[in-house]
C-alpha cells in the first residue's frame, strides 16, 4: 500500500514524522497552507487511481473557526474534492467520510474500486476556549506544558526553573503583561512563541514542536495525539 500524508505546514510535518515513524509513508506532502491542499491531493493521487496498488492518504487540517470553518464543512469539502478526482478518471464513487466512534474529529472512508483509504484528522482541540481557531499547535502546547516535558526542555536549555513556574510565566505572567499593553494572544501559536522565547530556543513553532517531541515519552505523545494514532490505526484494519 502506498501511503501519502497531506498537511498544511511545517509543524504538522514534525508531528507526522513522529507519529508515523512506524509506518512506511511513501511521501509526506506540505501543501503550504490549506488553500491548495485539496488540489495538491488530487493532482498527486489522480494518476495512482489507475494503478493496482492500493493507496492510503491521511489529511491533517486545522479548524479555522474564525473563518467560518466547521468540521462538517471540512468533511464536505474533502468529500467533494475526492469525488471530483474520481470523476476525472471515470470512477463513479461518492466519498462519504464518517467520524470514528471514539474520536469525533477523525473521519475515515474506504473505497474498494479504486482501492483507497482516506483518513481526515481535524484539529479541534483548543488549549484555551477563547482561541479563534484550533490548530496542531494547541496539541503541541498542551504537550509542551506537561511538567515532565517542560522540565526536560528547560534542562536542555540549561535553565534552572521549576516546570510549574515555567508554565506560569508562559500561560499567565507574560500574557497578562502583553494584554495590559494592548497585545492580544489569540491562538496557540502565540503561546508557543512565548514558550520558545522563555526557554531561549528557536521561536519557529515547527522547530519548537520538533524539540518538544524529542523530549516527550511515546506514551505521552500517544495520549495527546490519540486521535491521530486512531486515524492511522484504521489502515491496519481489513
Amino acid at each position: 500500500m502506498k501511503v501519502y500524508v497531506f498537511f498544511e505546514g511545517k509543524t504538522e510535518e514534525k508531528v507526522v514524522n513522529k507519529v508515523c515513524s512506524g509506518i512506511s509513508v511513501t511521501k509526506k506532502i506540505d501543501a503550504q497552507g490549506k488553500g491548495g491542499l485539496h488540489r495538491k491531493l488530487a493532482d498527486i493521487l489522480t494518476p495512482l487511481l489507475e494503478e493496482p496498488q492500493p493507496v492510503a492518504c491521511l489529511v491533517l487540517r486545522d479548524l479555522d473557526t474564525h473563518e467560518g470553518e466547521t468540521p462538517e464543512r471540512i468533511v464536505q469539502s474533502l468529500n467533494d474534492a475526492l469525488r471530483r478526482m474520481f470523476e476525472q478518471r471515470g470512477f463513479q464513487v461518492s466519498p462519504d467520510l464518517q467520524p470514528l466512534a471514539d474520536h469525533q474529529n477523525v473521519f475515515v472512508w474506504t473505497s474498494q474500486q479504486p482501492a483507497m483509504r482516506v483518513a481526515l484528522h481535524i484539529a479541534t482541540y483548543r488549549w484555551k476556549p477563547e482561541f479563534i481557531k484550533a490548530t496542531i499547535d494547541d496539541y503541541m502546547l498542551g504537550l509542551a506544558l506537561e511538567p515532565t516535558i517542560a522540565a526536560a526542555l528547560a534542562q536542555s536549555q540549561r535553565l534552572v526553573i521549576e516546570p510549574d513556574r515555567l508554565a506560569a510565566k508562559i500561560t499567565r505572567e507574560l500574557p497578562d503583561l502583553l494584554t495590559q499593553n494592548g497585545i492580544q494572544l489569540v491562538e496557540a501559536k502565540d503561546y508557543v512563541r512565548l514558550y520558545a522565547a522563555v526557554i531561549k530556543t528557536h521561536t519557529s513553532p515547527a522547530v519548537f514542536a520538533e524539540k518538544v517531541l524529542e523530549h516527550a515519552q511515546e506514551t505521552t505523545i500517544r495520549q495527546h495525539f490519540a486521535a491521530l494514532y486512531a486515524a492511522l490505526d484504521t489502515w491496519e484494519r481489513p
Binding site: K27, R39, T46, P47
Partner: peptide, 23 residues
Amino acid sequence: SASRFDVDNLTAWLESGLDPRLV
C-alpha cells in the same frame, strides 16, 4: 496498462519530490 499524468499531476509530483517515473 498505463496511468496518466497531465501537467497538473506532473507539477504536483515534481514539486513534492515525487518521481513519476518510479512505481
